[in-house]
Design a binder for these strands. Structure first.
Lengths: 130, 130
DNA sequence: TATTACCTTTACGTTAACGTAAAGATATTT
DNA sequence: AAATATCTTTACGTTAACGTAAAGGTAATA
């Protein structure tokens, strides 16, 4: 047979993304990943690796794993049903709304941080440096 | 005495920010809020209200409550010590770095969402509408 | 005055997202 | 062949962030 081009072991992914193997297996338990098996051993395809990357990106954005699974499943092919597609569009827009809210939050926070920083530097000046 | 201008009860804040009173008391238990008391009853000043707003903003950005407390304490006055100020600037820059990472994540996700949406709409077209 | 509406503290329960340990299979290296 | 490295499953433990009573104080209102 062919295949076996660019696959990954669980520990390889674990090192690359700086998470434990337990974490990766946990994502599989929750249905976010479903790698192939060579015998008993898990074998991760490039597509699996991309899924993991997406999951971790979602985590950084404060998404729950359930949310991430939903979003990731959006990118999957074969959404045949029209109702499904419409639901999907709704979900996408809801997610976009949440992200825009986050953007606002971030710009507010960055603004606050800038002020805090200049205040800080001012205080350092008037305090005198060693 | 004066004061009593624009204070808030716990249930008022609870309604305004759509969190439970338990949540607000929880933030106090963790040292994120410390409202005044009228007898036994908590009385929240506008400053307390702002702190709560900041906490919830942090939550939306995926910060832990401990992280939020650190950040919020940055805005407090009276950072007299020079070392403290320097540590503070470091913390601010670290936080800024994290936020910029989040911005990248969000733009990537938005890009993905856009593609998913157009794919979706294409699929709807070729599937025909009812 | 009795009910209704808020307020309080105390304390155990719950969920998500893993951590950690045990016990064993497989496989490569010394 | 023995040791070392990776893999596996199973299962109980942990932490954060609250939820959910329970039991009671205060105060305005019917």
């Amino acid at each position: 047979m062919m295949s076996a081009m660019a696959d990954y072991s669980i520990s390889q992914l674990s090192k690359e993304f700086e998470v434990t193997t337990r974490t990766i297996r946990h994502y599989e338990e929750l249905g976010l990943l479903y790698p192939a098996r060579r015998g008993q051993t898990r074998v991760y395809s490039p597509a699996d690796r991309t899924r993991l990357r997406l999951i971790l990106r979602g985590k950084r954005l404060g998404l729950s794993l359930d949310d991430s699974r939903e979003i990731i499943d959006m990118y999957e092919p074969g959404k045949t049903n029209v109702d499904q597609l419409k639901k999907l569009i709704d979900a996408i827009q809801a997610q976009r709304h949440k992200l825009n809210q986050q953007l606002d939050d971030i710009s507010l926070l960055l603004k606050d941080l800038n002020k805090a920083e200049t205040d800080c530097i001012e205080a350092l000046k008037s305090n005198g440096l060693p």
